[in-house]
């Protein structure tokens, strides 16, 4: 029999100007439309058009929109455990996150958590390992971080604050002038392609890497659970296929655009700097101390953290062999 025509609204947490991260929602919408002969239509709206970017989870939960495209770690104020759905400090890379989600039980673990919010979630893209942000001054030692004023939200801010950084979440329009004049010393953002657009390189030349607090930030599609259950099986299939494609599309797209963007930044006088080992070690120690504290407070967190940690160890042992062996030799030799 003929399938019904269904129209959904998708609220993205991102502006259209960040075309890669926002673009995944457009990929989803186009593919779903194509797979259903134009009968299942999803219209993406950029952040603020229906709800502000950081309200997307509320909006899907309340059924204001049927779909959201966002990152779960924006909502750690609701439950800290949600950070693992995106990326946590010293966590999994994009490939490992996919392995955990699709085959390591990650999706199922989080489905049980999101069900309490009336939401079902699907992996929806990844930024890959992010950059560590823009610093006005060079950071040589752990002591240089003490009292450093940095715009860094969420889990990254948690770890940085344990290293003595003063995390500040400023209004969007205030970040650039504050960094320019030294009101703050540093800000983190995403990766070369997106960072270039915001122009931080004009006012803070030291570009640190890696963004160890987000080694592979996974984006996610949230669907209102009731709407999902009312969806015809074929449309559910189409949605899952399209979401998986969007998940892959974003990572591939970022990999393609970041290389040239980094070269452009370097031509503009950006100084690329690797985090000193001392800082990475201290940060890793702080991160795991923080995980343990949270795990002691909350059973759900403990359940996810334990499963994640076991998976992480397996993955790191394996990736340290063939992948790392090849990469360590080949990448620096261009």
């Amino acid at each position: 029999q003929a399938q019904p025509t269904i129209r959904w609204r998708l609220a993205s947490s991102f502006p259209k100007s960040l075309d890669t991260i926002y673009g995944a929602a457009e990929v989803l919408a186009e593919r779903v439309r194509a797979l259903t002969g134009g009968r299942f239509q999803i219209r993406p709206y950029q952040a603020g058009e229906i709800v502000p970017g950081l309200q997307v989870m509320d909006a899907v939960q309340q059924g204001t929109v049927e779909v959201g495209h966002t990152a779960s770690y924006y909502f750690v104020g609701k439950a800290q455990v949600l950070a693992f759905d995106t990326s946590v400090p010293f966590g999994l890379t994009a490939r490992q996150q996919n392995a955990w989600m699709y085959f390591g039980g990650g999706i199922e673990l989080f489905r049980s958590i999101f069900a309490d919010f009336g939401i079902i979630q699907f992996p929806g893209g990844n930024t890959g390992a992010q950059m560590g942000g823009w610093f006005r001054k060079e950071i040589r030692t752990l002591a240089d971080l003490r009292g450093l004023k940095m715009r860094i939200p969420g889990p990254g801010g948690q770890v940085m604050s344990r290293l003595g950084v003063v995390p500040q979440v400023l209004a969007g329009g205030d970040i650039y002038p504050a960094l320019e004049r030294g009101t703050i010393d540093a800000t983190e953002w995403v990766n070369p392609y997106d960072d270039e657009k915001l122009g931080f390189y004009r006012v803070a030349k030291n570009y640190y890497y890696p963004g160890f607090w987000e080694p592979g930030a996974m984006l996610v599609f949230y669907v209102n659970l009731r709407e999902w259950q009312r969806l015809p099986k074929e449309y559910q299939q189409a949605f899952e296929v399209a979401a998986a494609e969007a998940n892959q599309w974003m990572m591939a797209k970022y990999d393609q655009v970041n290389g040239p963007a980094l070269q452009r930044l370097l031509r503009n006088g950006v100084r690329l700097r690797k985090w000193p080992n001392e800082i990475m070690q201290a940060a890793q120690k702080a991160a795991f101390e923080w995980f343990e504290e949270e795990a002691a407070k909350d059973a759900t967190y403990r359940r996810v953290y334990t499963a994640w940690r076991r998976f992480r160890e397996e993955q790191f042992r394996w990736f340290a062999v063939a992948e790392l062996g090849y990469e360590q030799f080949a990448f620096p030799n261009v």
């Binding site: 950081l54 509320d58 939960q61 309340q62 770690y73 924006y74 909502f75 750690v76 104020g77 609701k78 439950a79 939200p153 969420g154 801010g157 948690q158 604050s161 995390p167 979440v169």
Partner: peptide
């Protein structure tokens, strides 16, 4: 919307919030 926030004792997502 407000009751939902109350029921989970919603916090700021940022450190010290």
């Amino acid at each position: 919307w407000a009751m939902n926030s109350l029921s989970i004792r919603e916090m700021s997502p940022d450190v010290g919030g």
